[in-house]
Design a protein around this nucleic acid. Sequence first.
DNA 1: GCCCATTGACTACATCCGTAATCGATGCGA
DNA 2: TCGCATCGATTACGGATGTAGTCAATGGGC
Lengths: 122, 122
Amino acid sequence: MTEKISEAELVVMEALWETAPQTANDVSDRVAADRDWSLQTVKTLLSRLMAKDIIAADQDGRRFLYRPMVARDDYVAGESGRLVNRLFGGRVSPLVAQLAQQDQLTADDIAELEAILKGLKS
Amino acid sequence: MTEKISEAELVVMEALWETAPQTANDVSDRVAADRDWSLQTVKTLLSRLMAKDIIAADQDGRRFLYRPMVARDDYVAGESGRLVNRLFGGRVSPLVAQLAQQDQLTADDIAELEAILKGLKS
DNA sequence: GCCCATTGACTACATCCGTAATCGATGCGA
DNA sequence: TCGCATCGATTACGGATGTAGTCAATGGGC
């Protein structure tokens, strides 16, 4: 069971999931679009992610190339499942109902959901 | 914009959402099913929730009766929306696709989802 | 009227999190 | 070869969180 990824760490993970491997500087540059962090901050987050075995690093000369050890899909699956369990008693439909009520469902979403359901019934 | 509810605080909130108002003792008893907390711990959590204006208390003799100020639906809506935004770029269908892939969709869910979609298309 | 049980308030303290400065090693340019 | 820029590692520090002990007030039983 993978360790918890904090909010700030997740921003770093997104950068690494987008492209890997990357140096600390690469990550810092990429993250700069979202957050106004110093390079040091990004390095600390990378260290913590390493300590949690969520990413790994390969030496390249005197720097490191960082890469995720956890697939984004796996993480997303875990978080989604956790939410559904925590707040909806494990049932998915109340979640969708909830989102529908918030008008979070686009026309595209609706079409895709229908396709998903059709696929499941076969 | 409501303040953040921590994991432990959420357990207390669930108890209060289930029945309200309740005394600290009531909440503690109810929470005992899930967590092995001392009464003091529950009281601290109640205090913090009060400080965040997430619950309120009415005096009843020398004790307080606590009640939620935030509806469960509102909280759940916020969390669901946040998840969808953070992990799925605001799109709902990839979330459902994800859950479907994890076999988290029961037959009932599928039927209910179809009903929801049907309702939306009208 | 007095003591005790109960209650909320205050305090405590370790850990995690966000954010960063500083340190020590090291390779590159002059 | 020597200083500087660069890199990761270590340390820092305030705020949030999880968990709980202790204190002061107070109301009820005797």
